[in-house]
């Protein structure tokens, strides 16, 4: 006897971007993070900020990876946290945009400094701080794009990087 085939049969590791709407109350981030560490799930990236001051709601974006069964578990576990209003798997629910911002500090002089500035232009990174011997670039884009830019800067006097982690939103008119 058989039922319809299960979507959870696959054991391939998938990367999913999950958006969560939560009450902005003390401890809510600890609950989300504790769930991931306590149950052994991966967090590739996690961002959070208040998005509705009147309703005191925050939006959390998590990038995680696992088998389809694990991803389903993660969403179910998130869904049963009391302060969680909604859980959306953007990866499953259709096209979405994903962005990340990085601040990249590069120090150097001469040809390397010129090359850094030229590459920044190519990548559409903005200069947000400059001294005679250094720049801080601000770059926004997909994670891989940031990785490539930072990789190139490593050759040109990279001092340090600060990244926001991923924020994401579905395409089209629908809300969370």
């Amino acid at each position: 006897m058989t039922a319809r085939p299960s979507p959870f049969a696959s054991t391939a590791i998938e990367r999913h971007t999950i958006s969560i709407l939560v009450d902005n109350e003390p401890g809510v981030l600890a609950r989300v993070i504790g769930l991931f560490s306590g149950r052994g799930y991966n967090i590739e990236s996690l961002t959070v900020a208040e998005v509705d001051r009147d309703a005191t709601l925050s939006r959390v974006t998590i990038v995680t990876s696992g088998t389809p069964m694990i991803i389903e578990q993660i969403k179910a576990q998130l869904g049963r946290l009391v302060p969680v209003h909604r859980v959306h798997d953007l990866t499953l629910e259709g096209p979405f945009v994903e962005r990340e911002t990085a601040l990249v500090k590069v120090a150097g002089t001469g040809e390397k400094r010129v090359e850094a500035l030229r590459l920044a232009d190519v990548f559409k990174a903005r200069v947000v701080d400059a001294t005679i011997t250094s720049f801080v670039f601000e770059i926004t884009g997909q994670g891989e794009e940031l990785d490539r830019f930072i990789g190139l800067m490593a050759e040109l006097g990279l001092v340090g990087v600060s990244r926001t982690g991923v924020v994401a939103m579905s395409r089209g008119p629908g809300g969370i």
């Binding site: 039922a3 049969a9 069964m69 578990q73 576990q77 869904g79 049963r80």
Partner: peptide, 14 residues
Amino acid sequence: IDPSSINKNVRVDV
């Protein structure tokens, strides 16, 4: 009653 109990240890069909 708990969606997180479903498909946690054993894959279910319905």
